[in-house]
Computed example of a mutant assay.
Amino acid sequence: MSKTKQTRSIVAAARTNATTLRAPLTAFAVAYLLSACGGSELSAPPAANAGGSVTPQPQPDPTPTPTAAATSGALTTLGATATDLGNTLSSTAIPGVSPALSQGVGGTVAATGGVLDAAANAVSSGLGQIGSTPDPVGTTVAGTGSTIGATGAVVAGVASTVNALGQGPLSPLAPVTTPIAGALTTAANGISAGGQVLGNTLASSAVQQVTQPLSSAVTPLVITLGQQTQSVGTTTGIGQPVSGLLGQIGGALQSAGAQVAGTSGNPLAADVGHLVSGVGTTITNAGGLVNPNGPNGAAPIPGLITSLVGSTTNGVQPGTPATGGGAGSTSGPLASLTGLLSGAGAASPLSPLTSALGSAGTASTATSSPTAGLNSLLGGASPLAGKLP
Rank of each mutant, 00 (worst) to 15 (best):
K3W: 08
K3Y: 11
R8D: 05
V11Y: 03
A12P: 01
A13M: 13
T16I: 11
T19K: 14
A23E: 04
P24M: 03
L25T: 08
Y32H: 00
C37W: 15
G38P: 09
G39S: 13
L42F: 15
N49Q: 06
P66E: 12
P66S: 11
P66A: 14
T67W: 08
T71K: 00
G73Y: 01
L75C: 07
T76M: 00
T77R: 06
L78Y: 14
G79P: 02
T81V: 07
T83W: 04
L89E: 04
S90C: 00
S90Y: 01
A93D: 10
P95Q: 06
G96W: 05
S98M: 06
Q103L: 06
G104Q: 02
T108G: 11
A110I: 02
A110E: 10
L116K: 10
A118W: 09
A119N: 09
A122Y: 08
V123P: 00
S124D: 05
L127Y: 04
G131N: 02
G131M: 01
S132W: 02
P136V: 05
P136T: 03
V141E: 02
G143L: 06
G143C: 08
S146A: 15
S146H: 02
T147M: 13
T147G: 03
I148N: 08
T151M: 12
G157T: 12
G157K: 10
N163D: 15
A164P: 04
A164T: 05
L170G: 14
L170V: 13
L170Y: 14
S171A: 15
L173V: 04
T178H: 01
A183M: 07
G190F: 04
A193I: 03
V197H: 12
V197G: 05
G199H: 07
S204F: 06
S204P: 03
S204Q: 09
Q209H: 05
T211N: 06
L214A: 15
S216D: 15
L225R: 13
Q230T: 09
S231Q: 11
T234L: 11
T234D: 07
I238K: 04
I238L: 11
V242C: 03
G244L: 05
G244K: 06
G244C: 05
Q248A: 12
A256F: 13
A256H: 12
G257Q: 02
G262V: 03
A269L: 15
A270F: 01
H274Y: 10
L275I: 01
S277I: 00
G278A: 15
G280K: 07
G280I: 07
T282I: 05
G287P: 14
G288V: 10
P292Q: 03
G294Q: 07
P295K: 10
P302Y: 00
S307D: 05
S307A: 13
T320S: 14
P321C: 10
G325S: 03
G326W: 11
G326S: 14
A327S: 09
S329K: 03
T330G: 05
G343K: 08
T354H: 11
A356Y: 04
A356C: 05
G361V: 06
G361K: 05
G361T: 08
T362A: 15
A363L: 10
A363S: 13
G373E: 10
S376R: 00
K387L: 15
